[in-house]
Design a protein around this nucleic acid. Structure first.
Lengths: 106, 106
DNA sequence: ACTTCATTTCGACGATTAGCTAAATATCAC
DNA sequence: GTGATATTTAGCTAATCGTCGAAATGAAGT
């Protein structure tokens, strides 16, 4: 989970995940969306792989990256869920609005 | 939002937020939970303040830190919401203020 | 005023990170 | 095999980060 937050700490990597949200894309296709070099993008991909946030499939001379949504969700929702409960571990549609959680007055 | 993810990328800071989830705590009280020096903790607090994740209140010679849940939720749920419809724009049964974000990203 | 306690600021240090160019690897087309 | 294309690896640099001890700030208490 630490790896996921680490991966998410970079704007470029978050943007890559957002691109992957719509459809799987090849490394080059993804790289075309950013003003950095190929090797730099490759390094970002490596971090995303290390966090298990993407699936990799080699097809011919290209590499297709695919988002692993469940991993992203488990980490983020799991973390936020510990705070607000509405977004909790296994309760997608809870009835407690997040707005009802306030600073404790205890 | 970038600041929030940046702040969340460190385990110590995430743990601080978790401690703050239960109740507001003073800097020293929080620091007691970690094996690092005071100055180091102070630096972590500064990052959390920079991300607007905590409220600060000076009381006598102590400083009370309080979690700003909505900021945490807006960032994390907003981001995840852009990926999975279930967690995002409109929860089927409940509508949380933090979840009512997102439209089209990128 | 002086001392004590809580916290932050100041420099400094080693580790990590994002970025680059050049080179290596792999696959396809010829 | 040769050449072109896609991606990664290797080696490097500069910036950022987490950490520390020492000093500074601020607010009591004596």
């Amino acid at each position: 989970m630490n790896a996921v937050f680490k991966a998410l700490s970079d704007p470029t990597r978050r943007h890559v995940l957002e691109l992957l949200r719509d459809r799987p894309m090849t490394a080059g296709e993804l790289a075309d969306h950013f003003p950095v070099s190929g090797p730099t993008m490759s390094a970002h991909f490596a971090v995303l792989r290390g966090a298990d946030l993407v699936d990799v499939q080699k097809v011919g001379k290209t590499v297709i990256y695919r988002l692993k949504l469940s991993v992203l969700e488990d980490a983020l929702l799991g973390f936020v869920g510990a705070f607000s409960a509405v977004t909790g571990p296994a309760t997608p549609a809870a009835s407690t609005p997040a707005a009802s959680i306030k600073g404790t007055t205890s």
